[in-house]
């Protein structure tokens, strides 16, 4: 039985750096294997859509414009992503990769959460189609 058994911690803390930090001014180094924003590489993609099928949170749409000409657009909903990396595992051609440094993903506008990957003209086609539909791009379901 002792009174104040944590006094040593209290005293040593006075001469030690605080464990807490003021976040926006000081940032911790992200670990090497951190899973953050998803990136897609068109080169090997076959448009099979397994990534979209296995995604537990509907964060991925693979929009096939022309299968033969391999014109694919990859739409990624950052806000829905749970960073489980199942898509990376499911992809048979290893087209997907999760960055380890883009972890500050908060945003004030929903537009920032919709990311398109693909050739520039293809993305523009998809965007134009979405705009002409009048519906917001996120609700159109294309696979």
């Amino acid at each position: 039985m002792r009174l104040g058994s944590m006094w040593r911690d209290a005293l040593s803390a006075l001469v030690r750096e605080p464990a807490t930090q003021q976040y926006p001014f000081e940032r911790l180094q992200a670990p090497e294997h951190l899973r953050s924003k998803l990136h897609w590489d068109l080169t090997n993609c076959t448009g099979c859509g397994l990534c979209a099928k296995d995604c537990p949170s509907d964060a991925i749409d693979v929009i096939v414009l022309d299968k033969k000409a391999r014109k694919f657009v990859f739409r990624y909903h950052v806000d829905r992503c749970t960073f489980c990396s199942q898509c990376v595992m499911s992809c048979p051609k290893k087209c997907l990769e999760m960055a380890n440094d883009e972890w500050e993903l908060a945003s004030l506008t929903p537009d920032d959460f919709l990311v398109y990957y693909g050739n520039e003209e293809d993305v523009e086609t998809v965007l134009a189609a979405a705009a002409s539909n009048g519906a917001d791009a996120s609700s159109t379901d294309t696979e």
């Binding site: 605080p18 464990a19 807490t20």
Partner: peptide, 9 residues
């Protein structure tokens, strides 16, 4: 108190 608890306070 915060410093005793190793916080910034």
């Amino acid at each position: 108190v915060a410093r005793f608890q190793n916080r910034m306070g």
